[in-house]
Design a protein around this nucleic acid. Sequence first.
RNA 1: GGUCGGAUGGCCGAGCGGUUAGGCAGAGCUCUGCAAAAGCUCCUACAGCGGUUCAAAUCCGCUUCCGACCUCCA
Length: 491
Amino acid sequence: MASQQIEIYNTLTRKKEKFTPLHPPFVGMYVCGPTVYDDVHLGNCRTFISFDLIYRYLVHVGYKVRYVRNITDAGHLEGDRDEGGDKFAKKAKLEQVEPMEIVQKYTLGFRDVMRMFNTLPPSIEPTATGHISEQIEMTKEIIAAGLAYESNGTVYFNVEKYSQKNNYGTLSNRKLEELLEGTRELGGQDEKKGRLDFALWIKAKPEHIMRWPSPWGIGFPGWHIECSAMSTKYLGKTFDIHGGGMDLIATHHTNEVAQSQACNHCEPVKYWMHTNMLTVNGVRMSKSAGNGFLPMELFTGSHKLLEKGYSPMAVKFFMLQTHYRSTLDFSNEALQASEKGFDRLMNAIRTLEKLKVSDKSSSDIKALHQKCYDAMNDDFNSPILLANLFDGVKTINSIHDRKELISKEDLSLLKKTFRDLVFDVLGLKEEKISSNNDELGNNLMALIIDIRNEAKAKKDFPTSDKLRDGLAKIKISIKDTKEGTTWEIEK
RNA sequence: GGUCGGAUGGCCGAGCGGUUAGGCAGAGCUCUGCAAAAGCUCCUACAGCGGUUCAAAUCCGCUUCCGACCUCCA
């Protein structure tokens, strides 16, 4: 059973609710994954890093979580309302390869990036193309329920009919009439009956490469149905948490709820969670706006708006310093601040391992521990958690400087708190190398430090400074501490 | 136009009625051959105007800006 009472902000009710899983200790969580027709940009990564934090914390407090995150590798059209070309086919044509080569390339690229960000892989990572039959079955059931109709080889969901007995706009908090106002009039030759109707199954045009047989002819699934089909298959008709970016609320998730409800006759999701957008100069980072940063551009500093590169952990730390439901604005200054803050945190953790114990403690470690968990229990508030951890950093450094004391018992609690929360929950990791298994390197460094210390003893500072400056040029930094000289490689 | 969310110190960002958020930057001091790291101290803000309250960054109203969604996007 879980050791903490968590509160989650539910998009459905627009307030924080106590988290009570349907079938404790099990938790089912579905997150809308990437559409793999292009490189993931940083905004996408933010969402997955946020849900990684949520996943890690749920597991950490004792839940048995099945985390499902799909890979959308079919069915995505670039035009509005089920028109326009297939994104995969378009990209494949552009790169002169098979659509599935596109899928493979960007799926692997996506996983590489997520690994660099030190996120855990989901329990299941299902693909749309691997679940065509499930999507067809679901579409058949919705037709049988009288809430979808076939029109010239394409199947549409009947929103207006669905709305007679269900509330279609619950997630976006909008009424049907308001939604209708935003849509254009249907043309005379339109296959759709209602302006809000969306496709469950789409008839393939002759040039369309990704195609499958169905009761309605050769075609491919609509975008929304894959999530309904796969979440139902792996998590059941009703499951605990469904997540994704806020931009998915109005269309994708609204349609998902409708489809699942129509097919399974129950509310599909107990807690809907949505992450906010990453912005650049106050404007949302998106593919269409062309202001997206690729993770690799960020790591190497090759993007024109960047002054330098930032490591994956510095970027992740930057994201974790903001709550997942707030927008986060991207800038060099903010990134640099995060880079230094992250270094300070990691340095303190190294110091923590060297701390000496006393008979009693001069600060309340148990209270610190509790404040950290309180922060996470309050809708996964990682910025507050980090603020508390930085209070701990101050304590650690003070103890190291002999200005504060810590008991043996408190020291082990402090170590556990930092290890658990920084590494297991926040998913941060050490990037610098201070000593390694490279015997040659270690011996060379020991020799250099020895020569430098001899020079220092003889007050031959030009020599000692030459050694330190020379090492700095090859990214090795030297620090003279009370315990002796240490070195580390800047990564 | 409709719906929703914001405006916090030099920068980033918490906060949801009474407490120092935190990080970064800046200034001074301690330590150090000098650095670096670390510690201490300082800088202490809540878009504007009204209102409610013993008490408001926090609640209510109005105003001004900004953004998101309504069209593919995490």
